[in-house]
């Protein structure tokens, strides 16, 4: 009897965290939730890799998606027509890091303060620390340019997987630490 109670408690613990019922139990949620949305990839994936919404909290996306912010988006003009802007913002808010049960989203959330609304994913404390051993020349080189270009090094980034086992830096190769 004791064992049965124990098993029930253990299993409910495992499921408690998730939203999609029993099969979620086996689904891997180690990365960030992948995004498959044509509008989003077209509008936000042309200059750089289309970042998953789960890489920043709502407050960051809201700030970034303000019309005047988009006009000066890291020095570029990323202006969008109002209807598209609202739709993209909706997509971002729906799957933002603060609503996600994926591990890397939670890690990013845990590493930023409530009062902060960072616009750079690559400068959050979590990623700053993760990336601090990488020599600068490998980042600024022509084939990568900056930490903003996640997919240049993270071969599975499109799938939301950022595992250090899947890193392959141009002109360097696999990362062993």
């Amino acid at each position: 009897m004791r064992k049965v109670i124990f098993l029930v408690v253990a299993i409910s613990f495992l499921i408690a965290d998730d939203d999609g019922g029993f099969f979620d139990l086996f689904e891997r949620k180690k990365g960030v939730e992948p995004i498959k949305n044509e509008l989003y990839s077209n509008e936000c994936g042309s200059c750089h890799f289309a970042y998953q919404p789960g890489l920043l909290p709502k407050r960051s996306w809201r700030k970034m998606m303000q019309p005047q912010e988009l006009e000066d988006h890291f020095g570029d003009d990323a202006w969008l027509p109002e209807d598209i802007r609202l739709e993209v913002e909706r997509i971002l808010l729906e799957k933002s890091a603060d609503t996600s049960s994926y591990k890397r989203s939670k890690k990013i959330m845990a590493s930023i303060r409530e009062s902060e609304a960072p616009l750079r994913i690559s400068r959050t404390r979590y990623l700053d620390r993760k990336h601090d051993e990488i020599p600068k020349r490998l980042v600024v080189q022509e084939e990568v340019k900056s930490f903003s270009h996640c997919a240049k090094c993270h071969t599975e980034a499109e799938k939301g997987i950022y595992d250090d086992d899947d890193v392959d830096i141009p002109n360097y190769g696999r990362w062993d630490d």
């Binding site: 591990k103 939670k106 890690k107 959330m109 845990a110 590493s111 404390r125 979590y126 620390r129 993760k130 630490d177």
Partner: peptide
């Protein structure tokens, strides 16, 4: 040995690795 860098005490209990 291989994941001590994922322990971030200052990120607190919310951090899943902690």
């Amino acid at each position: 040995y291989s994941h001590l860098d994922d322990l971030n005490v200052d990120f607190g209990w919310r951090d899943p690795d902690n």
